[in-house]
Each structure stands twice: as structure tokens, then as C-alpha cells.
Design a protein around this nucleic acid. Structure first.
Lengths: 147, 147
DNA sequence: TTGTCTAACTGAACAAAATTCAAATATCCA
DNA sequence: TGGATATTTGAATTTTGTTCAGTTAGACAA
């Protein structure tokens, strides 16, 4: 057995998909060469970053989902902490925000324990002064896809 | 001019894409029929919800992004408010959460004004008692894709 | 309005990729 | 060990994507 499933999941998280031109053409009742032309234009404008898969995260062992609010110590304001945290594969989304908190992360793991490991290892060292974890009870919609 | 671009964006937000079996096969150095078999298996298990596009949201006029924490009045706890809010096309993600707040939403609009319209129209009526808007300064990663 | 330039659209030929399927191999478990 | 089930694979087939030259539509200045 080649255990291809985890490799597919890895690839599909960030890309390795492509538009279904024929299906779009038939849905919009336009020639496929017209659809092709318009998609290439969108891609060349840089409007499309990736074609990728969205999962049922329970079924790929990432059923535990949290949002984490993070505060950064002032002397780290000019360092790319958010960018560093974004590189963790468990981080689905990351953004810097205005107000009481500095960064918001969305993190998916198998369970609480794995999240706690990440919290200890990656969210407490560096310039992080404070965190607030919002634990997801029910994931309803992610990236415009209903779960 | 047929104005196909917005229609493509609509379709791509939720699907109308498909795996690149040949490219995956060559990346993983496996026969494409093997890759095909394993992908179909993932799909049949329900592990994959959709194949879709991720955008440069500035370039599709959705450059304003917020996270909103929402509180629900107790008499609405048994109603599907989160599900209702999820149906708004501007809502990228929605989840019910544990703790001080009941729901977290991620919303993309063209600008502050359009977000304010949604806040007034959809987030204040119904059973919503309180909201806290966290405005994104810099979107770093969304759905595992770097922006 | 007319003419000119550029962008958008399209059909048809072609190239590439997905899908199917039957046979071979591996895995599971009683 | 044996028999049922799941996975892998190459080759044939079907479907889809891509290219490109010709056409149409839109923008804009005279």
C-alpha cells in the first residue's frame, strides 16, 4: 500500500487543481473558448491565487479548530511574527488586526492536545505576550464552502 | 462584452474546479490511474467538500476584511442564527464558539461602508445582542494559501 | 457619424488529460 | 493458510483543454 492519501491532502491544501472549463461553459451557456479566454485573463491579472480543495476536516483528522487572538510585545512590532506563525502547516488563516489584539489565527489540529503543543511551542515563545483561544463548537462555513 | 468575470468569480468561490491528476501523478511519481483511484476514494468518503479558487481579494473588489465576534440573546440559542448569517455571500467563514462570544464570522466586502451596511442590516436585527469587529490590517494567509 | 485601434469573442483543429476497465498485486482477517 | 476485499496498473477510450486565425464589439478621437 502506497499511502497516497496524505500526500494528496498536502497537495490539495494549496493547489494542484484547475478550472472545469467545459462545465463552466455549459453552466453559463457560453463557448468553452470564451470561458478559457476569460479565465486566463483573470489568472494573468493575478486575481486568482490558487485552485485547491476544501475538506471535511473531521475526516482528515483535523477536527479540532480554534481561532486564536495574539498580542505582541511592542519591541517585536517591526518583526514578521505573523508571517512566521503563518508558516505553521496547522495555521489555516492568519492576519494582523487593529484594536486590542494584534494577530488573529485560525488553527486546525486533530484534537486539543495537539493544539496545546502548538500553543506551547510556537505561540508562547517569541514576542507573544498574551493569547486568547476561541474554540470552535461547530464549523459552519469555511472559505465560502459549507461544511 | 459579456461580463463573464463576475460569473466566473461566483462559480469559483464554491467549486467548478477539479484535480490535476496528470500533474499530481508526475509530482508523486505514480501512475495517473493510481492517483485517479485514490482521489475518487477521498471524494467518495466525503473527505473532499469542493475544489475551488482562492483569490487576491483586493483584485476582485473585496479588499476589506473583518472578523466579527457575535453574541446571541439567550432566547435565540435554539435557533439557527449562525446558519442564517452564513448564507450571506460576503461571509467567508462562520462558526459557533465556546466562551464569552457565541459566533465568529469572517466577512469580506469592498470597503468599510459596505461592511457597515451588512452590520446594520444583518448583524443587528435578529437575536444579536452585541458584536465586536476586528478589522484586518494585513491578510497573510487564507485557507492555507498565502496572499 | 466615421474611422481606427484594441480588446473580447468564437469555431474548428489539435493536443493533452481524465476516465474506464480488466488483470495483477497486495492486504486483511477468520 | 485461504478466501474475500482493497489497491495498483497499463492500455484503450472518451472527454476536456488549448491554440489560433478570423470575427465582432467597444472605446475614443477627429
Amino acid at each position: 500500500m502506497k499511502n497516497i492519501k496524505p500526500k494528496l491532502i498536502d497537495l490539495f491544501k494549496g493547489g494542484y487543481c484547475t478550472p472545469q472549463i467545459a462545465r463552466i461553459a455549459s453552466t453559463l451557456k457560453e463557448p468553452s473558448s470564451t470561458i478559457h479566454y476569460n479565465i486566463k485573463k483573470l489568472e494573468n491579472e493575478g486575481a486568482i491565487k490558487a485552485y485547491k480543495a476544501v475538506f471535511d476536516y473531521e475526516k482528515i483528522n483535523e477536527g479540532f479548530c480554534v481561532y486564536v487572538l495574539v498580542n505582541i510585545s511592542p519591541e517585536y512590532y517591526n518583526t514578521p511574527i505573523a508571517e512566521e506563525l503563518s508558516k505553521l502547516e496547522e495555521v489555516e488563516s492568519a492576519a494582523t488586526i487593529a484594536g486590542e489584539w494584534d494577530i488573529i489565527l485560525k488553527i486546525r489540529t486533530k484534537n486539543q492536545n495537539e493544539y496545546y503543543d502548538i500553543l506551547k511551542k510556537h505561540l508562547l515563545p517569541k514576542g507573544v505576550t498574551k493569547t486568547l483561544t476561541l474554540t470552535t463548537l461547530k464549523d459552519i462555513k469555511t472559505n465560502y464552502v459549507f461544511l
